Simulated assay, not measured.
Amino acid sequence: MSDETLLSKVLRDEDRLLALRRTGLLDTSPEETFDRLTRMVCRLLGVPAALVSLVEADRQFFKSAVGLPQPWLLRRETSLLHSFCQHVVAAGEPLLVQDAGHHPLLSGNLAISELGVVAYLGMPLITPDGHTLGALCAIHTEPRAWTSGDAAALRDLAAVTMSEMTLRRLVVEMVERGRREAAEHEATKARVRRLEALRRLADGVGHDLAGVMQAVQSGVRLAGARLGHDPATAQSILALVNDVARRGGAVAQRLTAFAPRGELRPEAVEVAP
């Protein structure tokens, strides 16, 4: 299978595209939660631009974009002719490019001439069930030799980004499930469905919240490495981690909406019968 065929197959995978749509992030307005992450990428890696890029079958949408030239910063999307991130999605692995003009895979990409992308470091955004939705990437307008420290920092921030996306998906699913159950009119059947829904949801949430905790650990590790020589950055990272942890706690609390409610009434019971 050629590289181009493999790229098309991965990008058009229906399960991956469904997982991408289920995030509820496509074509939504900028949000401070994600913009703080891209600003943090620029600050930690010393680059002029950073993106949270969600890759569909024929375009990439920027949930957050910092430092892109106009009109791309306003449009917040490009075709795949301008995309390095599609190759991160296809491989499901990081992509390090020191000078795109001399890269065999990217030298003809329009992102070089129209977006000014020369050096690129992209980390995949992978769901707990293995679907790569896009990339968190750092961009420089000049050639750059990325270090292992650069890659480690971006990997930790990608984990925080993915945890935020996972929390969003959980909230969307719980709201949708709540709406469906509100429409149910048969009390007994609705209660059975509620319990079954809670069981299935708890199975998934347990796995997803484990990913959130991994992101918290990554953020704490990243902050700890900078606490001594760069306390201001460490505090900013810890603020991101605290926000992720708070959102995870909120999701856990919302699970109680699916638990059966009722008053506990002790009664005397004849055991033998």
Rank of each mutant, 00 (worst) to 15 (best):
L264S: 14
L105T: 15
L105I: 15
D243N: 09
M165K: 03
G228P: 00
L106F: 15
A252F: 12
L136I: 02
H140Q: 08
E181I: 02
E176S: 15
H185R: 14
G228D: 00
H229A: 03
L17K: 08
T233P: 04
P94V: 10
A50R: 02
R16I: 03
A90L: 07
A151C: 08
D243S: 12
G116F: 06
L167D: 08
E31N: 04
D35V: 01
T33W: 01
D27T: 00
Q98T: 15
L6F: 10
S2K: 08
V171F: 13
M1H: 13
L264D: 12
V241Q: 08
G108A: 14
E32D: 11
P104Q: 08
A91W: 09
E4V: 09
E186Y: 05
G224H: 05
V55T: 05
L11P: 11
V160D: 06
R261Y: 04
L255D: 01
H103N: 15
L96K: 15
P143G: 05
S218K: 03
E142H: 10
E270Y: 13
A245V: 01
G228V: 00
A187W: 07
L227Y: 00
L74I: 06
F258K: 04
L51H: 07
V10G: 04
H140W: 00
V216P: 07
E93T: 12
E142C: 05
R43A: 07
G92W: 11
H207T: 12
L264R: 14
Y120F: 14
L264T: 13
S113R: 15
G249M: 07
I237M: 06
S2R: 11
S148V: 03
R194H: 01
V89C: 12
P266M: 05
L37V: 11
L121T: 07
A111W: 09
G24M: 05
P48L: 00
V216Q: 08
E31S: 08
Q235W: 04
D58K: 04
E176C: 09
F61E: 02
V41W: 02
M1Y: 12
R265H: 14
L198C: 02
H229G: 00
S2D: 15
L45K: 00
V212I: 06
T233R: 06
A119Q: 12
P266T: 04
S163I: 00
L81S: 15
I126K: 14
P266E: 09
M123K: 08
R168K: 13
P260D: 12
M162F: 04
A153F: 06
V10M: 10
E196T: 02
T5K: 13
G262D: 03
R194W: 01
A268V: 13
D99P: 13
R180W: 03
V251D: 11
A57E: 13
V52K: 01
S2L: 09
A272T: 13
L7Y: 09
L201Y: 05
S64H: 05
V66Y: 07
A57T: 06
V205M: 10
Q253E: 15
